[in-house]
Amino acid sequence: MPRTRLHLIALALVLALLSWAAAAQALTAEEILKKVDDNEYLEAARLKATLVISSGGRDVTKTFVALIDGDRSFAEFTNARDRGTKYLKLGDELWMFFPDAEDVVKISGHLLRQGMMGSDFSYEDALESKKLTALYQVKLAGEEKVGDRECYVLELTAKPGVEVAYARRKQWIAKAEFVPVKEELYAKSGKLMKVATAGNLRRVGGRWFAMEATMENRLKKGSCTRMVIEELELGVNIPPQTFSREALHR
């Protein structure tokens, strides 16, 4: 084969690769975040998960089952110690049912900042169900590898006048799955408060999900919580009365 032809094929291949890369690069930060939002926003989902809370050298394990439909969710703890403890989230409001006292308490004010069931996920974190594109201005800060995954690095800054828990967030989005595999959460002053990492990405119902997530509280030494999703079903049929305060007493 003449050498020139070989060169031409090689050149064409390089150009094709470059154009594919350029096409991938052409995704804007907003488009990436929108893909993440679309991927993460759950409608009619049921999940079963385990929380492993590590603090002060001790591990505590809790299990729960949750039903999620957009910004509504219902969770019931199933481990022996917390059996019957239930949470109901309707939009921006959260209620908790204590089985021992048979009482429903609305979680509001400073309680929202507390760790949910003693974990490093605050009630505030649990309440955040709005799409990030509605809350944050986003900037593509570059690309980095997290483990062996190629990631987009996004910097999110709260939109003016919008109520958010974290003024700034930095996310590492897996390029292939559009799932955040790492996230840093910052206070208004710029102090790093929490670091979340995600792993074990699985495809469920045509979408990618991180089946494991770890939240590390950077303000509290040695405090982190690992959540493992054991079962995840999408498109399940949830009776509408599930998301009601009456359901907490059942």
């Binding site: 900042r113 958010v164 828990a165 974290y166 003024a167 002053s189 408060m193």
Partner: peptide
């Protein structure tokens, strides 16, 4: 120490 609070806009602030 760090004083953790929320702004009027409910955003976390951590002040050393």
């Amino acid at each position: 120490f760090t004083l953790v609070l929320r702004t009027q806009r409910t955003t976390f602030e951590a002040l050393d």
